[in-house]
Amino acid sequence: MTETSELQLPEDRPLEIAGRVYQSRLLVGTGKYRDMMETGHAIESSGAEIVTVAVRRTNLGQNPDEPNLLDVISPDSYTILPNTAGCYTAKDAVRTCKLARELLDGHDLVKLEVLGEEKTLYPNMTETLVAAEELIKDGFKVMVYCSDDPLLAKRLEDMGCVAIMPLGAPIGSGLGIQNRYNIRLIVENAKVPVLVDAGVGTASDATIAMELGCDGVLMNTAIAQAKDPIRMANAMRLAIEAGREAYLAGRMPKKLYASASSPIDGTFF
């Protein structure tokens, strides 16, 4: 980990993704909530401006009165980020993105994720690279879920991905950031935003990601599966802000031994 010298504080640049500036550095998913109302309230409480959705078949036997997710999370109020969750091949991911673009009237920002296997939902990076190339060629702005390999992250950036989103831990695991050093290396090498996507379990995990210099964090389960999702959404909002502030402030160096906070001079004993 690099030492932060007093004179070299990180620059406080706003979060800009594909040419648009965002105030919130917390991106949230819309899955696993009890109902649509809870989804809406939690997202409001999180302060997120970018919200992910999945694209799925419309059920033939669906209740026509059931509210549509995009009525609750309106594209007029939020940047909708369709994902390719559930795709295990580049081909399926590209198809999903094209359907999403049609669904969202030409909106071309997508979250690409190509999964490798069901048990870990770890990204299949070879398929991810193939899909990213094809999508970028087709005009999509690709935010890419990826492994925390600094070289692959750089390659995705060089290809033209608009944001690099390494996992902190497996999707939905809540294990927190498992390899801080890799995340830090990816942040240092990148000129596009780096967001931890997946693995956050509680507020301190989100703070750690931000303290490492990440530009944002994308999470879903940590909020949706909390006992009180609306309160956890607020906790995450605060955690992201705290971590960002701490990163910008530049933390003190770690030392093995104590260093007294009160002066030694002037003691009367």
Binding site: K32, T39, A54, T58, N68, L99, L103, L104
Partner: peptide
């Protein structure tokens, strides 16, 4: 993909495989 504007004029044929999708909750 068949764009929305073409839905009224796009005639389906026997054996076509059609997917109709929408947005749902996801992370």
């Amino acid at each position: 993909i068949v764009p929305r504007s073409r839905h009224p004029e796009f005639t389906l044929s026997d054996g076509d495989r059609v997917e109709v999708v929408h947005a749902i909750g996801g992370g």
